[in-house]
């Protein structure tokens, strides 16, 4: 299905869209598929499956921590794909991989994309793949596959650059709510709201989804008011940390946001 599955979701005109980020291999090496299933059951609209990386520059402490645990647990590339495949057999919502460019380069862009399609992945977020280099060098390879690709926009991105990033994206554009690594903020300031409004006015081709700093029902609501959807990452990972029944925690976490 690929990016079509993502497009279909945003074409449903749902009032609020919730995406949850979960680190593959955390807290246990095989936790991700069961958590994903619970989240889908609770009504989460799409999932971002993190591929843990040794040097995750764009991530804050919480996700760094979960990644390091996952790597200690022995998670590897074969398992990213195998576990994604297992999730795909159970759920119908869009699935995205989020990982770093070096991981993609290492197994080879073509091989990586091919395996993504084979595993039922619909889209990708690769925060440190530079759009200029993508355009000049890698786009023809990505174009062979029908996957969504979401570039990031930040509060310091110029309007002109936002349009360029929108042109290169498919599925949705990822609007980073703050000039800050993930997991840093609580609540939205006026200047953040102004920033969301500014992007809205640009009438982008793609739906916009806000991520970073969304932690509860209130921030989720506000994010959806100014965009087409919201992604929760660190707050969910935090909820899992120390949980004795992670399936139940996942279910309740999503239900609390969506109720």
């Amino acid at each position: 299905m690929g990016k079509e599955r993502i497009n279909n979701l945003f074409n449903e005109n749902k009032k609020e869209i919730l995406s949850i980020y979960l680190t593959t291999g955390y807290p246990e090496i095989d936790s991700m598929p069961v958590l994903a299933e619970k989240l889908a059951e609770a009504g989460v609209d799409f999932l971002e499956l993190g591929m843990p990386y040794s040097d995750p520059l764009a991530d804050g402490e919480t996700i760094q921590y979960s990644s390091s645990i996952a790597l200690k647990n022995g998670i590897d590339f074969d398992q990213y794909f195998n576990q994604a495949k297992a999730v795909r057999q159970k759920v119908v919502i869009p699935l995205l991989f989020m990982g770093y460019f070096n991981q993609v380069l290492r197994i080879g862009i073509d091989t990586f994309l091919d395996k993504c399609v084979d595993s039922g992945i619909d889209g990708l977020i690769i925060p440190d793949m530079p759009p200029e280099v993508y355009k000049n060098k890698y786009k023809p390879i990505f174009d062979k596959y029908d996957l969504g690709l979401s570039f990031l926009i930040t509060p310091t991105t110029s309007d002109e650059r936002i349009k360029m990033l929108d042109e290169l994206s498919s599925g949705f554009v990822y609007v980073v709510s703050t000039s800050s690594t993930t997991g840093k903020t609580n609540g939205f300031s006026d200047s953040q709201i102004d920033y969301f409004k500014r992007i809205n006015k640009l009438n982008l081709n793609n739906p916009m989804v806000i991520g970073f700093g969304i932690s509860d029902k209130q921030t989720f609501r506000i994010a959806n008011k100014y965009s087409d959807g919201a992604i929760i990452g660190s707050a969910f990972i935090k909820a899992l940390k120390g949980s004795k029944d992670i399936e139940r925690t996942a279910m309740e976490f999503a239900q609390n946001i969506l109720k």
Partner: peptide, 11 residues
Amino acid sequence: GGAFIPELLHS
């Protein structure tokens, strides 16, 4: 070389 950085660092 190049600048393989998250968009957060672009500016």
